[in-house]
Design a protein around this nucleic acid. Structure first.
Lengths: 244, 244
DNA sequence: GGAATAGTGTCTCTCAGACACTATGAC
DNA sequence: GTCATAGTGTCTGAGAGACACTATTCC
């Protein structure tokens, strides 16, 4: 039997890009203000094309089968072209589809979510818009739902993995890490328990186990007691033995 | 700016269908043999079309944009047409893509995984092939990887949700439920702890909480002590407060 | 010294793991 | 009674939650 070809749908990719601002995460070390809370933001880009030109939307675009090796490569290209970002954490979220979600034709979009430390955004594209991730609504297409799903995934994985470390630069303090977790989870964590669990977390490198968090010689200096800066032992996601 | 149309990829859906056989799950109540372990099986269908005609593969097919409302509907149609199944648990797994995964063209397939009690398979299509899910290999395309990913998802969700209940008929005993969890997780669980956690599990129905497992008047009779049969309070997935 | 943040020590209480125990029905 | 499965009671040990405490820096 010869394979019969069916009409093909529109195929696109969309990226929910998250970052964290506020608190100790982005403030200069010498800031004087009392601690304000860090918050998760979603990065939007004004649409250039029809439909909805000008409306802030999550970055996305057509799959280019002559150019993209696979969907992940297409998502990375979108981040590069629309946000000026390279080498950020990127993971597939969900594929949304349907006869009516795009006014033009039956369409299918594979959504990815990405995490970026805020400092990397500052040198990137100029037309980026930040919105609090839990209050993003009124976006075109089904982007409201995609953002909500991405945030849910981020929250879920934050409870048992080191995923939120990807929202910080390579060197960070434990206070910053705690703030990022609190921003993502939407609640305070117990400082002592948090440090205990983080400090006990190990990662296998071949046969031997090494601590996931490695002390560096650097410290972050501000108006008060300096904080030790840590780096990750691996870029991989690491799971906690138990929940938070 | 007028939207420029790019060439579209092949779009298909594939379904990893799991079931559990053996042990108390499928044996007749009066069987005399000593308990053999239950095991997770993946359901395969011999391919009818090129490429790889005749080879057992996970059921799949072209997306039909004139017929399918969305990808989930396409997956449900595939289960109906190729396996004779309706109304089984079905959830999106991952979208696989690339220029080379299908010899014909740049292709994209959204994989779903589905769970079915074995008794529903007996009245279904005749050409179905069962394979132990953890030893399925040599399948066409990238189906080996898709099955492995589906099994990993099933295992992962089994540790914190009631997902494996979908591998049992509407009425089941706690022993059967334990066997299904053991088959999925690939290890024994502690009977006492398992029953304690299952028994304590509650589900919110509006404002009030009711037990997830509801006793029925029926009991499952065999050669030995009869077992109380339970039913689920809800078809929804329920999460445990903690891990197993 | 005070203010503010960084970081630690330790108690408690919950709950999963362990396992011995009882219960029921066919024979 | 025995056999086999169904189902329970209870101890314990690990570890998250709670919170008081100490440490370091700038002023």
């Amino acid at each position: 039997m010869v394979s019969y070809e069916f009409p093909r749908p529109i195929a696109t990719v969309d990226v929910v890009l998250f970052t964290v601002i506020g608190g100790q995460v982005t403030e200069p070390a010498d800031r004087a203000s009392p601690r304000d809370e860090a918050s998760v933001q979603v990065v939007l880009v004004p649409r250039r094309a029809e439909p909805f030109p000008g409306a802030p939307a999550i970055p996305g675009g057509y799959l280019r089968i002559g150019e993209d090796a696979d969907l992940a490569a297409a998502a990375a290209r979108v981040l590069r072209e629309k946000c000026g970002l390279r080498e950020v954490f990127l993971e597939q979220l969900f594929t949304y589809s349907g006869a009516t979600r795009d006014p033009r034709d039956w369409s299918l979009t594979t959504a990815y979510y990405a995490l970026v430390p805020h400092e990397l955004l500052r040198g990137a594209a100029a037309d980026l818009v930040l919105r609090p991730a839990d209050r993003a609504s009124g976006l075109p297409f089904d982007h409201d739902r995609i953002v909500a799903d991405g945030l849910r995934r981020l929250r879920g994985k934050a409870t048992y993995t080191t995923l939120p470390t990807n929202l910080l630069p390579p060197r960070f303090t434990l206070s910053q890490l705690e703030e990022v977790y609190e921003a993502v989870l939407g609640r305070k964590v117990h400082t002592s328990s948090f440090r205990r669990k983080m400090g006990e977390l190990e990662v296998r490198v071949g046969a031997e186990a090494t601590p996931f968090l490695q002390k560096t010689e650097q410290s972050r200096r501000g108006k008060f007691r300096p904080a030790v800066m840590y780096r990750k032992a691996t870029a991989e996601l690491v799971s906690f033995p138990q929940y938070f």
